[in-house]
Nucleic acid binder design. Structure first.
Lengths: 138, 138
DNA sequence: CGTGTTATGATAAAAATTTGTCATAATCGA
DNA sequence: TCGATTATGACAAATTTTTATCATAACACG
């Protein structure tokens, strides 16, 4: 949270309760919410919070490098306050998105860079399947 | 091409010039076209081809397992007649999408499955960066 | 070749997220 | 605390891909 305030001030953005609230949710969840999920979570706390404000806050956070935008194959984005590049896994039954930790993935970028001749800037690794609890009901 | 006709007939779909034309383009390109790209390519050959027909053809192909739908982070899909699961790399300058061949990626799914407990059905691995020719102009 | 069924094409319409507008409110530095 | 500037909120509007409609055309089977 200290980071958010510092970053906002450094760039001349104002520190507002709304921005803090949005970032706070992102920082304290592992469920990679979309804009509508964020909005729903904020409603109880900030009944007057507007969708536009959520969008505008996220825009600022992206610019500050405080969140990353994920495209998990839905027609909307999800957001993650963990800006480290890391793979995600989505349950195709219940829709949840989780992180994947695997050392094997660390060397991947280098390897791909050598093979392709591209200068990599980014990667998005998504796995899809049934999560442990959903796979029981199949 | 023989596959397409066989598959269509097996499932009771009619063999039409439009379906053949759409599939033909997908089969003979490596650029992973989107619907609008397909439509543009078809225009010179089939001036009366409709966008709706492109969409409907792709729907059938997906059902037959003849194409895969890619989400490379745009707000539309791209299509690939190579239905093997394989990683893609996108140039963030010129927008082209290419395949990545790397043996390292083959074990990945198993590894992730073990780590996460998920039953994997699918994966989408996307790398982003500047392609060899675009990176010169930076 | 004829008939029943499915596909096509043109256009309208949906669908849903994201952006714009602008009056009002809040922030921040002096 | 004051004043200048920026942000918020409510809603309109844009954007754009994708689906639905339906009369006409084409296919496939006997």
């Amino acid at each position: 949270m200290i980071d958010l305030i510092k970053f906002l001030k450094e760039k001349g953005y104002k520190v507002t309760p709304q921005r803090i609230a949005v970032y706070d949710i992102l920082k304290n969840t592992k469920e990679h919410p979309s804009v509508d999920m964020l909005y729903s979570k904020l409603q109880p706390v900030y009944p007057t919070m507007s969708l536009a404000t959520v969008y505008k806050s996220l825009e600022v956070f992206k610019e500050l490098g405080l969140v990353q935008e994920l495209n998990v194959g839905e027609d909307k984005f999800r957001y993650d306050a963990n800006v480290n590049q890391h793979p995600h896994i989505t349950c195709i039954n219940c829709g949840k998105v989780e992180d994947v930790y695997d050392e094997m993935l660390f060397d991947l970028a280098d390897q791909v860079q050598k093979k392709t001749g591209y200068q990599l800037t980014n990667q998005q690794l998504y796995f899809f399947g049934y999560c442990p609890s959903c796979k029981l009901n199949h």
